[in-house]
């Protein structure tokens, strides 16, 4: 069984439509989606995934400058971003200011969000991380050049769903790691563990999400050439 979403048309209006359709209830009925290579992973029918909810919110900001969607994202993410920044060594005042900046950046860059390459939480993490580097380290972190060059093709909807599923699986896997291992990974992300202190074998189950992302990148490369 495969997800029978039409491949995306080229114009922006239908792209937006297709983008929304992904999250329509029809796509979440039992047995409709099964994208993993074995065909064995299915999205449970009754679980409205948080990630897809946030993805819809970002789409509403991008398309309609929707302030309610912004408020919903803010309520959820701003306190977590603030918590992350405090844990990374920012004062409460600085963390408050930076969390507001991060959310403002989200509003301004909503059109750059590509849900086939990152979940909403992941994309917001990257904005928060960059703000943290500016604020705390006064350092620079050059970014790789983006792949898209010229008009960006709309993300493939099956890729979006698959990435969302892989992100949720990864989140669950991280929460169920042994405490000691989880502490090490948190230290790497929050407490400036040096790269040589991070083991090259992290024990994180990244295989699935990596191959999902690689497929989406290949598709994008193909579309750009």
């Amino acid at each position: 069984m495969t997800c029978t979403i039409d491949t995306c048309p080229n114009d922006l209006a239908s792209f937006t439509g297709a983008f929304r359709n992904v999250f329509a209830a029809g796509c979440r009925t039992p047995g409709v989606m099964s994208i993993e290579k074995s065909g064995s992973v299915q999205v449970p029918a009754n679980r409205q995934s948080d990630n897809s909810r946030w993805t819809v919110c970002i789409g509403r900001i991008r398309d309609d400058a929707d302030e309610d969607a912004f408020a919903e994202l803010f309520d959820h993410f701003a306190p977590r971003i603030k918590g992350y920044l405090i844990k990374s060594g920012a004062s409460a005042t600085l963390a408050e200011e930076c969390a507001q900046d991060v959310m403002a950046t989200l509003w301004q860059k909503a059109h750059q969000f590509d849900p086939s390459r990152a979940s909403a939480a992941t994309w917001i993490f990257t904005i928060a991380r960059n703000r943290r580097i500016d604020a705390l380290r006064k350092s620079r972190r050059p970014e790789p050049e983006d792949i898209d060059w010229g008009p960006e093709p709309p993300p493939d909807q099956a890729d979006v769903l698959a990435l969302e599923q892989a992100s949720e699986d990864l989140s669950r896997a991280i929460s169920s790691l042994p405490d000691k291992q989880k502490a090490l990974i948190e230290a790497a992300y929050f407490h400036d563990l040096s790269h040589s202190e991070i083991a090259d074998q992290t024990g994180l189950p990244l295989g699935t999400i990596k191959s999902r992302i690689r497929l989406a990148l290949d598709r994008l490369r193909h579309a750009m050439n």
Binding site: A92, T126, A128, A166, S171, I185, L206
Partner: peptide, 24 residues
């Protein structure tokens, strides 16, 4: 690049799991 985005996803998962600090 795919490996990097996978590590970014770990950051996303940790952020989602983060303790909240209430906003002003």
């Amino acid at each position: 690049r795919a490996r990097l985005y996978a590590f970014d996803s770990v950051g996303g998962a940790l952020l989602s799991d983060q303790n909240c600090a209430s906003m002003a």
